[in-house]
Simulated scan of single mutants.
Amino acid sequence: MNSRPSMRPPAGLDQPFSLYLDLVRTLAALAVVAAHFGYFGIFSARQVAAIPDFGREAVIAFFVLSGFVIAYSAEHKNHTLGEYAAARCARLYSVALPVLLFAFLLAALAAGPLHGRVDDAYQLQRPWLYVPFHLLFLGDVWRFAERPPWLLPYWSLDYEAWYYVLFGVACYLRGRRRLLALACVLALIGPRLWLLLPVWLSGVALYRWQRRPHAIGRGAARAGWLLSVLLMALWGWLDPEPALRQVANGAWPFTAIRLGSADRVLADYAVMLIVLANFACARHAGFGLLERLRSPVRRMSAHTFTLYLSHGVVIGAWQTLVPIERGQPGTILALAAAIALVTVALQPLTVALQRALHAGVMAFAGVLGRVPRVVQ
């Protein structure tokens, strides 16, 4: 890569666009929570019909955004394999580890002394097996379809963690080692995870496209952004996903392996295209107004991962302890407040744990020796 600053391609992540992605991340997390209020019977049937369910679409937006941000970080921040591994492990486990332990502990109390109903309660009998299993993100490899108790959103981590591994192998190894490692990881994760890999990689491709100058005028970018928002609204209104899911299940060639969490793959590809168009246009739309909202947007975005993963634990514990009358505004507001409180309370722990994990992995990498990155 040419080292002269004047020849360096633009980063593709200027301040307004970075704030926009943080805002999207926050709205996507809230969309998942709202979808689960419907799924777990917090909303009434009328409320479910009135409130669009964009939970799956939000996860696809997370995947595209993740690929984009990881590609940016690999180019500008994580210059060695050790730095990349430290950043990714610290980010994932700083939230996944405490929330997973929290879920197992509360679910065990609910299923034991409180005699409550807990889905996947069989895992509570062997935590020594299932906690490490989930910390290795094996819940969706090949024929497995395992979710931790009260952690329905955990499935997306089972995909994303392995996409991190694949990206790290492709970006930081070279020659035969890279090809062999890629083949081994792809063979390990199985066909379900292969299906959604293009969604995550589309974010990487978008970053590499965005970092180069493009002739997209502000007016055209804003029109394209608005069109992508309207297309997403139309998607939610028409809801073609059930029909596409049926097609995907019918075309799935591995009869011994259920599509499971990947059975919406055709719809996911369509949503991916809308999200890509939205992000590509937002990059050039000049949303400078977001600068005025920088502080609240950054603060809310910092809590999204914890909110995304922990809200199911709060819902599960609440349903065990307090009978829920569907659709009651007081119940909805109280549960929302409890979710917000737990999210905020966990944040100092996750931040401290992230720092400790990052330092630990970097120390370990220092012992093994750093592997230089292959510049793409």
Rank of each mutant, 00 (worst) to 15 (best):
L188R: 12
L188K: 13
G190W: 05
G190A: 02
P191R: 02
P191A: 01
P191D: 03
L193T: 07
L193E: 02
W194C: 01
W194K: 00
L195H: 01
L197A: 05
L197W: 09
V199S: 01
V199L: 04
V199Y: 00
W200S: 07
W200G: 01
W200C: 05
S202E: 06
V204N: 04
V204L: 04
L206S: 12
L206C: 11
L206E: 02
Y207V: 09
Y207I: 01
R208T: 14
W209D: 15
Q210N: 15
R211G: 07
R212P: 13
H214V: 15
H214L: 07
H214K: 06
I216F: 10
G217V: 11
G217S: 10
R218W: 06
G219R: 11
A220K: 13
A220D: 11
W225L: 14
L226G: 12
L226M: 15
L226I: 05
L227A: 15
S228K: 00
S228Q: 05
V229S: 12
V229Y: 05
L231Q: 10
M232W: 04
M232R: 08
A233G: 13
A233E: 10
A233V: 14
L234S: 15
W237L: 14
W237S: 04
L238N: 07
L238R: 14
L238H: 11
D239R: 05
D239C: 02
E241Q: 14
E241Y: 02
A243V: 07
L244G: 05
Q246G: 12
V247Y: 07
V247M: 13
A248L: 02
A248V: 03
A248Q: 01
G250H: 01
G250R: 01
W252N: 00
P253R: 00
